[in-house]
Design a protein around this nucleic acid. Structure first.
Length: 277
DNA sequence: AACCAGGTTATAA
DNA sequence: TTATAACCTGGT
């Protein structure tokens, strides 16, 4: 078991916010979470995380990276409050929420599956995907499956994907697989790109539009300058700012209002609308 | 029995 | 360029 300082982060708020599809809340209120290469069990006490894992190699750094603990959220939020006084109410409610730094490959596939879908079914499909094509890991007498590796994924055929029950999205996942085959180093490539170019690059995939591409960049690459506008954010803007429009118009509206860390702000809106109000 | 769920694409105006 | 239907599936 290792102990890591996590400041004023709220673990359960962060893990259950819907950004992560592979988290399991246990009876004792701790969480099993499946990371790229290992399983962890984590709980929070005051300003510390207590973590167990099936693999302790470099675990502290893995946790710091996953929960993005080196980012100075306090400073970000102070700056946002100064520049956006009408948003303080939301910031106060969301200051303990964190954006996880998840596996980019997993984000790509998961958020394609997420379109016009609900969390329960998304999770189910991803679970099937991992059970069928991922490596199994025994942790505390429970069997979990890691997200499948690149080398496995690129060999999958449409028939292999139909088992996921993702319906019309199966061909979109296949399109992503074609993309992966042709762009073996997509993670590295995106890392070098400006966010707007990375969005266009991801949208080459059939089935990846603006929303999904933004989610991949926000949750897989910590790009806080992306704008994932979904139905929840549209509802928030309608209610909070009394402004209605298409997602494009809402994007323009928010763009005028917020400048720095807009991805984080929009995630706060999503979070606020879903969990607080 | 319709309708909906954390969108995108293909068509048509 | 912008609007609308159709899309798999499972739950209410």
């Amino acid at each position: 078991m290792i102990k890591i300082y996590c400041g004023d982060m709220n673990l359960s708020e962060t893990l259950l916010s819907g950004q992560c599809f592979r988290v399991y809340e246990l009876e004792d209120k701790s969480f099993d979470v499946i990371l790229s290469d290992r399983i962890i069990n984590v709980y929070q006490k005051y300003h510390y995380l207590f973590v167990e894992s099936n693999n302790y190699v470099n675990l502290e750094n893995v946790i710091i990276d996953y929960f993005d603990l080196n980012r100075n959220y306090k400073e970000i939020i102070v700056n946002l409050k100064e520049k956006n006084p009408d948003f303080i109410k939301v910031l106060n409610k969301c200051s303990s929420y964190r954006i996880l730094r998840q596996n980019p490959l997993e984000m790509l596939i998961s958020y394609i599956i997420s379109q016009n879908n609900n969390v329960k079914r998304i999770s189910k499909s991803i679970e099937i995907f991992c059970e069928l094509y991922g490596e199994s890991v025994l942790f505390k007498n429970k069997k979990y499956y890691l997200f499948p590796k690149y080398e496995t994924i690129i060999n999958l055929k449409l028939e292999d994907l139909q088992a996921l029950k993702v319906g019309f999205r199966d061909k979109y996942v296949l399109s992503a697989i074609e993309f992966l085959k042709n762009n073996k180093n997509f993670i590295f490539e995106i890392g070098k790109m400006r966010t707007c170019d990375a969005l266009d690059y991801l949208m080459l995939i059939k089935g990846v539009g603006m929303k999904v591409a933004s989610c991949i960049l926000l949750f897989g690459f910590s790009r806080f300058d992306t704008y994932p506008i979904d139905t929840w954010v549209i509802k928030f803007v309608k209610k909070f700012y009394n402004y209605d429009g298409t997602s494009k118009q809402i994007k323009e509206f928010l763009d005028k209002k917020f400048h720095d860390n807009i991805g984080l702000c929009i995630q706060f809106m999503f979070h606020y609308n879903r969990n607080v109000s």
